[in-house]
Simulated assay, not measured.
Amino acid sequence: MVEKKKEALLPRQESLGWLVAVLGGQMADSLDQRLKALGLHIGLWPTLFVLWEEEGLTQSELAARCQTANYTTTRVLDTLEKLALVERRKHPTSRRAYQIFLTEQGRALEAEATALAKACNHEFLSALSEAERDQLIALLSKMLAARATADLS
């Protein structure tokens, strides 16, 4: 006789954390496959994405915006430097800090790389109507903003 499993209090399919983690993992894998065509990988993406928004950040500022540890950011920057996509420049007012800037090659990747990311987003959002997409993005943004406010208090 086969024993029935005890019903979970919160099934995976109703767990926000599980759903977000699975979807995030699938999206990261999909984007990673696309980025390989450019000689990049998903581990470099957050740093490049932030630098395309704003250059001249210090490594600490970059780590905070990417929500990664400083040592992780150091490794990513080392890789991006070897790929000739970024350069470190001495900070004008701090003897210890460096500012991070994209090279021409790093800037040139932006259009193609962000097009790949948009295609990935489109693929994953294709099951939703335009109104549902807008609502999902708005709700997730609202949740992130609430968390950021909670983390400050």
Rank of each mutant, 00 (worst) to 15 (best):
A69Q: 14
R95I: 02
L125S: 08
G17R: 06
R34W: 08
E110I: 00
A115T: 14
R96A: 04
Q67P: 00
V22Q: 13
Q13F: 07
L77D: 12
W45K: 02
E132A: 10
W52I: 01
L116S: 07
F49L: 09
T72F: 03
L62N: 04
R88D: 05
E112Q: 13
L57I: 04
A113Y: 05
Q13Y: 10
T93Y: 15
L85A: 07
D32H: 11
A117L: 10
T72E: 09
A113C: 04
Q33N: 15
A84N: 13
H122W: 09
R95E: 15
K36N: 12
T93G: 00
A108C: 02
G25K: 01
G56P: 07
L44P: 04
L35A: 07
R89P: 00
A21C: 02
A127N: 05
R65T: 05
L44V: 03
S15Y: 12
E130C: 00
Q59R: 13
T74D: 09
G24V: 01
R95K: 09
A69K: 14
G17A: 05
S94Q: 11
K36W: 13
F49C: 10
K36S: 12
C120P: 01
L80P: 10
V86K: 08
H122L: 01
V76F: 03
A119N: 14
N121I: 03
Q13V: 07
K90R: 14
N121S: 07
S15D: 15
T74G: 01
E54P: 01
L102Y: 06
